[in-house]
């Protein structure tokens, strides 16, 4: 039996006047997992995260974190939650270490060991003023403050914005370590590769509504594989009429199709004709995402 969810969102809606931010959103994030939250700009990712953190008032629904109400018990929740917003800002005139010490003390802590360790690991110069830092270095400050209090849940909104590829890898390693240490991580992203690399599950949101929540591997499985075949001559379309084969496109000698089931039957059928070339591709999350959106969210 699965453990109780760390984040339990039920029927969450947020309206801005007549504009729908999110509507009827249900989502659970379980302890010790990294949940990716995918969607294009304006889909409702940040709104969902901010509603979880009580920065926005909910229009409908409920959000429980650690089994506590996100509004009524927000102080207790915040004691146990680290957060990195998508647009992180701080005091431009102050040194990084002054800022981080202040934020640490705001969490009621004084032990700086993890703060110092993270700063060293991310090559963050603590003696520079925040206003003098590049965008990437400012993001590092945000990352350090999100993880330094060693909290049970870390919520990250587009966390790798501005980081160079090397630093992104360091960040992914950090996420994996935190997961191994039992932390739960909920991160939004539009970088599909990073979600694919570090997340256990993914939730896809579109126009404020949740489209799918799935293990990445089973989502890929469900989405099928792309089969491309080159025949030496014309091809009989009837041989592709198999349950589990869709989106068949015939262009001269080339045929492409999506195969979700009965791959063996497909192979048997096409092998009745002369094959010159054939490839079978697993969808990357990128392609999966585009397929999902181009199909209007049905995933088919």
């Amino acid at each position: 039996m699965r453990k109780k969810p760390v984040i339990d969102i039920r029927g969450l809606s947020k309206y801005y006047g007549d504009v729908v931010g999110i509507e009827g959103l249900d989502l659970k994030v379980y302890p010790g997992e990294i949940m990716g939250f995918l969607g294009p700009n304006g889909a409702g990712k940040t709104t969902t995260i901010r509603a979880c953190l009580d920065l926005l008032q909910k229009s409908k629904g409920e959000v429980k974190i650690f089994g506590l109400d996100s509004h009524e018990d927000s102080l207790e929740i915040r004691r146990r939650t680290g957060y990195l917003p998508g647009d992180f800002g701080m005091y431009n005139d102050l040194k990084v270490k002054t800022i981080l010490r202040y934020l640490l003390s705001q969490s009621g802590l004084s032990d700086e060991s993890k703060m110092l360790e993270l700063a060293e690991r991310l090559d963050l110069d603590m003696d520079r003023r925040y206003g003098e830092l590049s965008k990437g270095n400012r993001q590092k400050v945000g990352m350090v403050q999100a993880f330094m209090a060693d909290q049970d849940l870390i919520i990250l909104d587009e966390p790798t914005t501005g980081l160079d590829p090397l630093m992104q890898q360091k960040f992914y390693d950090l996420l994996r370590e935190e997961r191994e240490n039992g932390k739960t991580i909920f991160m939004s992203s539009h970088i599909l590769a990073e979600v694919e690399e570090v997340c256990d599950r993914v939730a896809i949101i579109r126009k404020g509504r949740l489209q799918v929540v799935e293990d990445i591997s089973s989502l890929k499985e469900k989405m099928g594989k792309k089969l491309v075949v080159e025949f030496d001559d014309g091809v009989d379309p009837e041989i592709f009429k198999i349950d589990g084969v869709k989106d068949v496109k015939i262009e001269g000698r080339w045929v492409t199709m999506i195969v979700t089931r009965n791959l063996d039957q497909v192979i048997k059928n096409i092998s009745k004709q002369n094959i010159i070339n054939m490839s079978l591709e697993t969808f990357s999350l990128d392609q999966l995402f585009l397929t999902y959106y181009s199909s209007g969210g049905s995933g088919t």
Binding site: L53, E76, R79, T81, Y83, P85, D87, Y91, L103, Q106
Partner: peptide
């Protein structure tokens, strides 16, 4: 304006 309200209000102070 300096976009730090989010962080300040997600620390455990009311």
């Amino acid at each position: 304006d300096d976009r730090r309200m989010d962080i300040l209000l997600t620390k455990p102070i009311s």
